[in-house]
Design a protein around this nucleic acid. Sequence first.
DNA 1: TTGTACGCGTTATCAC
DNA 2: GTGATAACGCGTACAA
Lengths: 345, 345
Amino acid sequence: MKKPVTIHDIAKLANASSATVSRVLSNSNYPVSAAMREKITRIAKEANYIPNMLGKQLKTNTSMTIGVIIPSISNPFYSSVILGVEEIAREHNYHVIVCNSLQNPDFELGYLQTMAEKQVKGIILSSIAQNTSLLKGLLQNGMHAIAIDQRIDEEEISQIEFNYAKGGYMATKHLIEHGHTRIGYATSELDRHSRTEIHQGYLKAMSEAGLKPVVEISGAGKVFSSSNEFDSGKQLADKMLERHKDLTAIFACNDVMAFGVIHTLTSRGLRVPDDLSVIGFDGIEYGQMIHPPLTTIKQPDYEMGILACKLLLDKLQDKDSSHLSVMLQPRLVERASVTTRQAGD
Amino acid sequence: MKKPVTIHDIAKLANASSATVSRVLSNSNYPVSAAMREKITRIAKEANYIPNMLGKQLKTNTSMTIGVIIPSISNPFYSSVILGVEEIAREHNYHVIVCNSLQNPDFELGYLQTMAEKQVKGIILSSIAQNTSLLKGLLQNGMHAIAIDQRIDEEEISQIEFNYAKGGYMATKHLIEHGHTRIGYATSELDRHSRTEIHQGYLKAMSEAGLKPVVEISGAGKVFSSSNEFDSGKQLADKMLERHKDLTAIFACNDVMAFGVIHTLTSRGLRVPDDLSVIGFDGIEYGQMIHPPLTTIKQPDYEMGILACKLLLDKLQDKDSSHLSVMLQPRLVERASVTTRQAGD
DNA sequence: TTGTACGCGTTATCAC
DNA sequence: GTGATAACGCGTACAA
């Protein structure tokens, strides 16, 4: 492990000053003679020169890095978001630091702190709960933030929202339009903005149609894991079936939970959608792989990541500090888990 | 956006030297009087001091960052790996930069390069193809690497391997032990080490039992996406059913592909496992959610991430440069997609 | 126990 | 067009 070669080493080899070398190697538009430029470029290549970004970043006060804080990468919704973020980041030579908060406020704070220490100037948040004080301080010190999938009451943060309420409304409406009147809603704890909104959408659609809502809420949501959500779905379906034997459709607050619901129904010998229709929410890829393929509401996850990263980089590069707020719209994905209610029901 | 406060600012406020401030705030064990220590700590807190890691890292030549290069985060196997990596990294105050190569060699090289420029000293690789030259150069300059899920012929790289051959053997054997004799193997292109190994395991088990192998290979694998794998599974199952009408079991090279196989079988009115048994490979969580729950071979993904990160941090911290190689073992997860062959078959 | 002064690798400012 | 030289924020010999 030899000592890394610096611009000074190159300068010596090229009989030039480190200033000139810097100008050439950093693609500055500062005038340098063609001959000198060629010479330095050649020598740098021969010497296998690797620029030390720490020096550059310290000087220019810009780390080419953005951070993303999400609940968990194991949630396919978020992994799609990340994929979108990274695509845009890569195009601009930025790197992405992924932080899984696992819904733990301490982890969130820790990540936020060390991110600031590493001079990360832009972050995309989808997990901050109530720790606004630290975040507020960072914003004043030049940090930029975009919030996705979550409402943060902070003037300086651009928001990429998703119309959860409308999504919830659309899903419920879809069932109603297929003749269903006894529709249950299975949801995890209503502790996040998104959850309450979907719930509201459901209630609104039911109310408009003059139908009586049937809501079943799962116990304290621990750390997100697909298995947990799946199990919740199974349990909620069990409860619903026992307490409301006349249901003809169930709306689950996310796709994995819908998988659980379908699992329970199938296990009990009920056919989906012939005996009961099921609709999910999220639009993850696995929805098409189960039986029957899941009808659901699609959240534009990948596009969300793309948009969030674009907005963030705009903020970082321009001095444009307009803090806009975008609202993405839900889309119904019709597959095969919903059918028109049978006359005999 | 005010100018950030540095140790010099703190020094002024505390009537101390920046050296003393540094010693206190960086938790050095250098002796500082209790009074002074308390004073500096207090003032730093009041001033909302945020250390600039770039300065520290430039000085000490250590970025507390590791990089992970994988094909795609959208593959649940890799997202589990990342979760494991990050858990260990967090415990040691390291950050994780996630790089999705999307199997694109140019992206891989680019990531490797900028990683080196950012003074990342450790990386976990699962995607490097043949670009050994750049990697080799970096290793000589103090970079440390761990390879997972892939064989890299490089003396200086620790490997965390998985016994794919044994996994393939176990899956096939499991079917044979359930009385199956006409067993098809559905696989994506045999372009990765893991793929060829599983294939070999299948062949070995078949050969030992004196059975004739039936292999169907999907066309050129583009970028990984669950949908693509799923579609491959559907198509391969179609082909198999047409060419080999007497099959009683199908082994798919990954779980998502098995989902596709099951989808095709179900669509054709065949019952799984009553008419045909299906076994997968990977052990992703979604396997338990489909119908029937998928019997599969479990790769310890999360544990792989944990182990990889531990090994890497050991390398970074100690000067211990022993390059060991670990081989993780497969485990059969029995669910409900395999059954004993019917007498009438 | 505390302070001074230098260097990490780079870019920016100013002379030439 | 080129070259000294001073920062950037921090850690750390070395001196006091």
